[in-house]
Nucleic acid binder design. Structure first.
Length: 292
DNA sequence: GCCCAGGCACATG
DNA sequence: CATGTGCATGGG
């Protein structure tokens, strides 16, 4: 008999209940930097994904996700993936227990591509609080009113807003990138075809969009297409890596090395590392990150 | 005032 | 292919 009960997922008409949520932690899932449209109220989170919303209550032994769209959020929260197996490999084969324990219950969300593209164009050279504010103003002013919240706007709606609108919501120099990219996608740049491409090819394809470079493309592939064979290198990851190595390497080389080391598990490792470092922890596992 | 934030576009060697 | 620079905005 196992010493711990395993996680149990029950779906009903009003939402999803997760008993013994060993690999489902709402705080860590939402605050690890992969998603921006959530609101931390005192005893619950509100989360908006595309045009749908859910409310998440965290209890001792279970998590309750209240929503009119339980099937959508079952997919969104990646509930059919066995995270315990992934964590076991990261701990046993890669010595990463320190970061997987700190970020326990992190999952990689399956987000909508267009929303992810725009969100991460906004994220470039920016901080999370400001990113959230810009996205909130974008949705409040352009997104359809769903009664209490606004949906993420469509490519067509965004393509037809004036440049000044994006400057007005505080996007700064990213305003032109956002508008150009919305126009390209509205004009037929396919986001579905990416599903047919290997990750390296998909990365080049996404980089044709204005405001999408290597790092933003990696984030889109990880968070919208669930490609875990990418390792987005931002300032935090670069910081961790360079501290572990005692020298400065450029982001391109850092990404190349980390991807080679972690392969298909890169995306998971990246999220744990990012969350750990951004929460101001100092790594005592340098040897596990550094090249041998 | 300076430095930084989930970097990118663009110009130049 | 690699390196350098300018860039909106707000917080520390």
């Amino acid at each position: 008999m196992p010493s711990e009960k395993s996680m149990e997922i029950i779906t009903d008409a009003d939402g999803i209940t997760i008993n013994n949520p060993l690999t489902f932690n709402p705080k860590h899932i939402l605050e690890c930097g992969q998603v921006f449209r959530y609101y931390d109220h005192n005893n619950h989170y509100d989360l908006i994904a595309g045009d749908k919303m859910c409310r998440i209550y965290t209890n001792e032994d279970f998590v309750r996700i209240k929503t009119e769209h339980p099937l959508f959020f079952t997919d969104y929260f990646d509930l059919s993936t066995d995270y315990q197996s992934i964590i076991n490999i990261l701990n046993q084969d890669y010595g990463l227990a320190e970061i997987t324990q700190f970020g326990h219950g992190i999952r990689i969300l399956r987000q909508e591509p267009f929303e992810t593209i725009i969100s991460f164009i906004i994220s470039a050279n920016n901080n999370i609080k400001r990113i959230q504010g810009i996205i909130e103003r974008l949705c409040d002013k352009l997104g359809e009113d769903r009664g209490g919240y606004h949906a993420f706007p469509s490519p067509y709606t965004m393509a037809n807003a004036p440049l000044d609108f994006y400057i007005g919501i505080g996007a700064g120099y990213r305003a032109e990138y956002i508008l150009k990219t919305a126009k390209m996608i509205s004009d037929g740049f396919s986001l579905d075809i990416i599903n047919q491409m290997p990750s390296d090819e998909a990365k080049k394809y996404l980089a044709r969009l204005s405001g999408v470079g290597p790092k933003v493309a990696d984030c889109i592939l990880l968070f919208a297409y669930h490609r875990t064979d990418v390792f987005p290198v931002d300032t935090w990851i670069a910081k961790v890596y360079n501290e572990a190595c005692g020298h400065c390497a450029d982001r391109n080389m850092i990404g190349k090395y980390l991807l080679e080391r972690y392969g298909n598990l890169s995306g998971y490792v990246q999220q744990y590392l990012f969350y750990y470092k951004r929460e101001n922890r100092n790594l005592s596992i340098k040897a596990q990150i550094r090249p041998s």
